[in-house]
Simulated scan of single mutants.
Amino acid sequence: MKAAYALTIASLGFILGACSHDGHNHGEKSVEENHEHKHADEIILAPEDASRFGVETETIKLIQFNRAINVTGELTSPATSTNIVTARTSGKITLRGNIVPGAEVKKGQVIGSISASGFEGGDPSEAAAISLDAAKKELDRVTPLYKEGIVSQKDYMAAEAAYRVAKASYSGSKGGSTVTAPANGRISRLMVSQNQFLSAGDPVLEIVGTRNLTLKANLPSKYFKLLPEIISAQFKTPESNNIWDISKMNGRLVSGVNNIVTEGGYIPVQFDFENTENLAAGTYADIYLVCQQADSCIALPKSAITEELGTKYVFVKVDDHGYQKRLVTTAGSDGERTVILSGVNPGEEVVTQGTVFVKLAQTKNVVPEGHSHNH
Rank of each mutant, 00 (worst) to 15 (best):
3 A>T: 08
3 A>H: 09
10 A>H: 04
10 A>R: 04
13 G>L: 12
19 C>S: 14
24 H>Y: 13
33 E>C: 00
40 A>S: 15
46 A>Q: 12
51 S>L: 15
72 T>H: 10
84 I>R: 02
84 I>E: 12
88 R>D: 13
90 S>A: 15
96 R>A: 13
97 G>C: 01
97 G>M: 10
97 G>S: 13
101 P>N: 10
109 Q>K: 05
118 G>K: 02
122 G>V: 02
128 A>T: 04
128 A>D: 06
139 L>D: 04
141 R>N: 04
141 R>I: 04
145 L>Y: 05
148 E>G: 01
151 V>W: 10
158 A>G: 00
158 A>Q: 14
162 A>I: 08
165 V>N: 08
168 A>H: 03
168 A>I: 07
168 A>E: 09
170 Y>Q: 05
175 G>L: 11
175 G>V: 11
188 S>P: 12
192 V>I: 15
193 S>E: 13
197 F>L: 13
198 L>C: 01
199 S>D: 12
202 D>G: 01
205 L>Y: 09
205 L>N: 00
212 N>Y: 15
214 T>I: 14
215 L>G: 00
218 N>M: 14
222 K>R: 14
222 K>C: 03
224 F>M: 13
231 I>Y: 06
235 F>P: 01
241 N>C: 02
244 W>I: 06
251 G>L: 15
256 G>D: 15
267 I>A: 01
268 P>K: 01
273 F>A: 03
276 T>N: 11
278 N>I: 02
281 A>Y: 12
294 A>E: 15
294 A>L: 09
296 S>W: 06
298 I>H: 10
302 K>L: 15
306 T>S: 11
307 E>V: 11
311 T>M: 14
313 Y>L: 07
320 D>N: 05
327 L>K: 07
337 R>N: 09
342 S>Y: 08
342 S>R: 07
342 S>A: 11
348 E>P: 00
351 V>F: 02
352 T>Q: 05
352 T>A: 04
355 T>W: 07
365 N>W: 04
366 V>E: 06
367 V>N: 02
